[in-house]
């Protein structure tokens, strides 16, 4: 038996001839926040739906709290809170009613917390769901999720309809849960959010995991952005090992260096009298793009 909160092993899911997930592996340890990123249609939601026992794996599978996601779905659901990417609610019920129903279907009910979250997310619970915008429907699902006493939060693009302030409140809620030792799986398109919240990142493309690890370890595989100004012009910079995309402009040089070659490059340029040096690690966005851009690394 593993200690992982979530363990996906060789998960494959086919819809007819279409392979939505191809041998997916991922793990999430207790107390960790895992960022699950990938473009539309890559298989993020399908993975989540298998984890929740809504879809049945074609082969392989997912274990949540060491239990089988399909067979023990109900036991698992008692300890998780889920926010779907596309929240559909009952048009003739109010937001307040839906929140209470959702919380009651899981178990415990914390009135104080519900009230606090309603204020925090600025949601009017007396309105019928049919009048809610996408963002407000997401708030309903988020409030129901954070009002419940769960061990694992599965959040599928939860902030895609929220404004930046609400997005900030959302991040606070996630950090609060993390500090309580809860685990979070966050599927997201908003890279800054993932960078801020996640310990681990898992990138999926066309149903396959293409990269996984901590943000730092992922960065090792990519390039550092550098911007320098030197006394003398640098000779043959573009021919150095690991240097790419050199652009010279008014005495300043912009380029990218493979992580492993940074030391050698810095040594080389020192000879030309460095006046200014800025270096930035690759953003998650660049990391992400590097996997999707067909011309990328």
């Amino acid at each position: 038996m593993s200690n992982y909160t979530l363990e996906i092993t060789n998960l494959t899911k086919k819809f007819g001839k279409f392979t939505a997930l191809d041998n997916v592996n991922a793990t999430l340890e207790k107390g960790e926040v895992l960022g699950y990123i990938g473009p539309n249609g890559a298989g993020k939601t399908t993975t989540i739906r298998v984890m929740l026992g809504i879809l049945k794996a074609t082969s392989g599978g997912a274990k949540v709290f060491g239990m089988d996601s399909w067979r023990d779905a109900v036991e698992i659901h008692k300890k998780i809170a889920y926010v779907p990417g596309d929240v559909t609610l009952w048009p003739n019920m109010t937001g307040g009613e839906v929140i209470d129903l959702f919380v009651a279907l899981r178990g415990k009910h914390d009135k104080e917390r519900r009230k606090k979250l309603l204020e925090m997310f600025d949601l009017d619970p007396t309105k019928k769901c049919r009048t809610y915008s996408k963002g407000n429907r997401q708030k309903v699902a988020l409030i129901a999720a954070f009002a419940s006493d769960a061990e694992l939060f599965i959040l599928d693009e939860p902030t895609s309809g929220l404004d930046p302030l609400m997005g900030h409140h959302f991040q606070q809620c996630v950090l609060e849960q993390k500090n309580l030792g809860k685990s979070v799986l966050l599927s997201s398109h908003i890279m800054s959010e993932v960078e801020q919240l996640c310990d681990q990142v898992c990138i999926i493309k066309n149903g396959k995991i293409v990269d996984t690890g901590t943000l730092d370890s992922l960065r090792h595989l990519t390039r550092v952005n550098m911007k320098i100004e030197t006394v003398k012009p640098i000779e043959n910079l573009a021919t150095l090992e690991g240097v790419h995309d050199v652009i010279e402009e008014r005495g300043e040089v912009d380029f990218k260096v493979d992580y492993l070659n940074v030391g050698a490059v810095v040594e080389y340029i020192a000879k030309y009298g460095v006046k200014k040096l800025e270096s930035a690690p690759p953003t998650l966005e660049e990391l992400f793009m590097s996997h999707y851009d067909t011309k990328g690394v």
Partner: peptide
Amino acid sequence: ARPGRATASPLLKS
């Protein structure tokens, strides 16, 4: 649109 209930009745909570 008339405001509805802010909380669910006990009947709904299942």
